[in-house]
Simulated scan of single mutants.
Amino acid sequence: MDILHTLPLPAALALLALVDGLSVGTLLIPLFLLIAPGRPRVPRIMLYLVTITVFYFAVGVLFTLGIVNVIDLGREFLASTAGRFAMLAGGLVMLALGIWIGVLDARRRKRAAAGDPTALEGRGRLLRWRERLLAPGTGRAAVMGVPLAAGLAEVAGMLPYLIGMTMLADAPIGMPGRFAMLAGYCMVMILPALLLLGLRVAAAGSVERPLRRFTGWMQRTGAENTSWVFGIVGLLLARSAFTQLGIVLPVVG
């Protein structure tokens, strides 16, 4: 956060948006659609990207319109003893959740290495879902439902997005300027997927194999990355709460 505050607001928002652009909803799902056998279904992929962009823009508008009072209330609450204990509890929960996700992922990897077919069930379901989504008879409503579901599932945990919206709400600019920056933020979020779509269309043969490897890496490490994010954020929150409460942690060694 300190680094972000040293940057101009557009640059800080662009940096956060690029991080958000690497999430499951904004990149991994579009990648799975891109590497489907045959020619890429550009209209359906574009419909997906437009839908998730509009979703995050709409959430950002609601967030921006009502966030100022929420920020003030939140600051007052976090400055109180109860708020600091709440932050400590939240940090410890996030830390425990990160460890739990990491343990489950390690167990899944161990089962997969031992040849347990159930460890790969999630991947098979994802491939079947992709086939149905790209089938000729699938309607637009079904395609649009996927990014909406992904956005609803992810938005509460997309820390860069929440930080960016808070910075935007705090900025001393008018509403038109905020909404313009919000629109730019959402466009930058889908920029990695748009660039990969352009590469897939322009040079299908040369980029298909790297895209498959990248998609496989993201799928394999998704749980591990989530575990680290939750664990690090939880640890930082808990440490900050301990400091504000005047609790001195013992130093080992």
Rank of each mutant, 00 (worst) to 15 (best):
M1P: 09
H5G: 03
L7N: 02
L15F: 02
L18C: 10
D20T: 00
L28P: 05
P30N: 03
F32Q: 04
L33M: 01
L33Y: 04
L34R: 00
I35T: 00
P37K: 07
P40V: 08
R41M: 11
R41C: 10
V42A: 00
R44T: 07
M46S: 09
L47G: 04
L49H: 01
L49V: 02
T53E: 03
L62H: 14
L65W: 15
G66N: 12
N69H: 14
V70K: 15
I71H: 05
R75N: 12
R75P: 06
F77Y: 10
A79S: 09
T81I: 07
A82E: 04
F85S: 03
A86G: 05
G90Q: 09
G91S: 02
V93S: 03
V103L: 15
R111L: 07
A112I: 05
A113E: 06
G115Q: 04
E121I: 11
L126Y: 00
L127Q: 09
W129L: 13
G139M: 10
R140N: 13
A141N: 12
P147W: 00
A149S: 09
A150W: 01
L152C: 09
A153I: 14
P160D: 02
I163L: 03
G164P: 06
P172E: 06
M175F: 14
P176I: 03
R178E: 04
R178F: 11
L182R: 02
A183G: 08
A183D: 04
M187L: 13
V188G: 06
V188S: 07
I190Y: 04
G198K: 12
G198I: 15
A202T: 11
A202D: 14
G205Y: 15
G205E: 13
V207N: 12
V207L: 14
R209K: 15
L211C: 13
R213H: 15
R213C: 15
V229G: 07
L236P: 02
L236C: 07
R239K: 10
S240P: 07
A241E: 03
A241C: 09
F242D: 04
T243M: 10
L245Q: 05
G253A: 13
